[in-house]
C-alpha cells in the first residue's frame, strides 16, 4: 500500500513542482498536509469534493474551499472515473475562452495526522468479527449522525467529527490506563 500510494503521488508531486516551482518535492507525501497549496489553486488546479457530474451537460461541479466551481469535460479528459459525487478529487484544467475544461482528474489521497496509521477494510473486518471486547478496540463513525443511523459498520459508535471537536473526550474511555486502547476512525471515504 505504501508503495502504491507513493507511486500515485509521484506524478502529482512532479506536476505541482512544474506548476508552482516545487514547494513540497522534498517532503514526505504523508506529511504534506495540504497537497494543493494556494499557489496551485491559481495554477488551474481544483482540489476538493466532487458535488456532481452531468454527462449530458459534460460538467463537473466541485467544492473548493467552501465554494462551488464548475469544470467542463470532453472526450480528452482523463480520469473521469474519479469525478464521482462525494469523492475527493484533484482536477487539472485549462481555460478555453471563458470556460474551464478538465484535462486530468485524479483522486485526492487523504493525508493522516502524524502517528496515526491506516487500516484497510480486510483488517478491520477481522476485528469486527471478534467484537469490541475480545478485539479490544473502539470503532468510531465520524460522519454526521444521520448517516450513522442509516447504516454503519457493525459495532461502531457515532461521534460525528463536529462533536469530536467540541466534546469528543466525553465519549471515549477516559481512564488513563486505556490510552493504548485501539481507536479506529472512519467516515464516508477519502474525504
Amino acid at each position: 500500500m505504501q508503495n502504491k500510494q507513493l507511486r500515485n503521488w509521484i506524478p502529482f508531486l512532479l506536476l505541482t513542482g512544474l506548476l508552482v516551482g516545487g514547494p513540497t518535492l522534498s517532503g514526505s507525501p504523508a506529511l504534506a498536509a495540504d497537497p494543493a497549496p494556494q499557489a496551485a489553486q491559481s495554477a488551474n488546479i481544483f482540489v476538493g469534493k466532487v458535488t456532481g457530474k452531468s454527462n449530458k451537460a459534460k460538467t463537473i461541479s466541485i467544492e473548493v474551499k467552501g465554494k462551488n466551481e464548475f469544470v467542463k469535460f470532453d472526450d480528452k479528459t482523463t480520469g473521469l472515473e474519479h469525478a464521482d459525487e462525494g469523492e475527493a478529487a484533484v482536477i487539472q484544467f485549462e481555460m478555453r475562452g471563458d470556460d474551464k475544461f478538465a484535462t486530468t482528474i485524479k483522486p485526492k489521497l487523504a493525508s493522516l495526522p502524524e502517528g496515526v496509521k491506516e487500516m484497510k477494510a480486510g483488517e478491520l473486518a477481522k476485528f469486527v468479527a471478534l467484537g469490541p471486547d475480545e478485539g479490544k478496540y473502539v470503532l468510531i463513525d465520524s460522519r454526521p449522525a444521520a448517516a450513522y443511523h442509516e447504516g454503519h459498520i457493525p459495532t461502531a459508535i457515532s461521534i460525528p467529527d463536529s462533536v469530536m471537536k467540541e466534546t469528543g473526550a466525553a465519549y471515549l474511555p477516559g481512564d488513563a490506563k486505556l490510552k493504548d486502547l485501539q481507536l479506529i476512525f472512519y467516515c464516508g471515504g477519502y474525504t
Binding site: V116, K120, A121, M164, K179
Partner: peptide
Amino acid sequence: MSPNSAGLAKKMGYTNVHVMLEGVPGWK
C-alpha cells in the same frame, strides 16, 4: 473528517489510533 478526529484523539493522549480511509464505501 475521520483523519481530523483521529488527530484530535492523538492529541488527547491516545497512542493506538487508526483511520480506515476507505470508509463506508470501501467496506461495502
